[in-house]
């Protein structure tokens, strides 16, 4: 089976400081991988390198494209990479404000990716946007409201709808439940699980919340000082961590 994403030797330095070093793994279709580690462990740097927001100093990020098969997204042209970013890839930011257009209605936010790939029928775009609002449990009557009038949890769900409307195959998530109430988090997690299952999505989720990865991720990578120190099945890494730091990380959490 061809991996959907094959990351090989990704290294990113900030001057003398290491962002992330020599990270390699394969992600297969339908897999959800969590990346955990403390602040500054390099997990966000890695995510941004994979998603094309940062250019790594070394390594490859090979994505199995629909048309041309596996391609290194680091060396592909910027228009191609940005096109991937609008079609097969999605990026869910921690702060919904970074991923939404706050001055544009909910429908316009969801419809943008459709229009970006050439849809030109207002009625169809609006129907699809409304359908997606429903899927992320936002009432259809809110379709013309701006996200500024939404709660934090709703904004995050809107961001997810905006990202998934073009049927991407790979979703990058940066602390998707950070900053939300516990009850809102649960609702979002349940929603994400359902979407991942129903759409056959692959996802890479960066978080420091071990409870989030336990519920969402099939696999887990633990990062420290820019390096992957342990990787494996999520429940195995959490319940039987092998590395000293993983053990510390798991034992530091009250109850997951």
């Amino acid at each position: 089976m061809t991996p959907l994403l094959s990351v090989q030797g990704i290294t990113k330095r900030y001057g003398a400081h290491i962002g992330c070093a020599d990270v390699s793994f394969n992600l297969y279709p339908g897999e959800v991988m969590g990346i955990v580690g403390e602040s500054g462990s390099g997990k966000s740097t890695l995510l941004n390198c994979m998603a094309g927001h940062l250019t790594p100093d070394a390594g490859q990020v090979v994505f199995d494209t629909r048309t041309d098969g596996p391609r290194d997204t680091i060396t592909m042209s910027e228009p191609e990479r940005r096109m991937l970013g609008r079609t097969d890839w999605a990026f869910v930011h921690q702060h919904a404000r970074d991923g939404l257009r706050m001055g544009v209605s909910a429908g316009g936010n969801v419809g943008e990716r459709l229009m970006a790939v050439g849809e030109r029928h207002y009625g169809d775009i609006r129907d699809k946007a409304t359908d997606w609002l429903g899927r992320v449990e936002i009432d259809a009557s809110r379709v013309d409201d701006r996200p500024t009038t939404f709660s934090g949890g709703m904004q995050q769900r809107l961001q997810i709808a905006r990202n998934l409307v073009t049927g991407p195959r790979l979703v990058f998530m940066d602390e998707p439940t950070g900053g939300l109430d516990v009850s809102v988090q649960a609702r979002l997690l349940d929603l994400l699980r359902g979407l991942v299952r129903d759409m056959g999505l692959s996802a890479i989720i960066v978080t420091h919340d071990l409870a989030v990865v336990r519920l969402l991720a099939d696999r887990l990578m633990v990062m420290k000082s820019g390096r992957v120190i342990e990787a494996g099945l999520t429940d195995q890494v959490l319940d039987d961590p092998q590395h000293a730091y993983s053990q510390l990380l798991v034992s530091s959490v009250l109850q997951v």
Partner: peptide, 25 residues
Amino acid sequence: PRDIIKLRRDVLGYVSQFLRVVPRV
């Protein structure tokens, strides 16, 4: 991991002593 996940989905069931689920489902 992906082979174990597939095994757990298709072949190997496990009833633990504790129920671990997403709240509100």
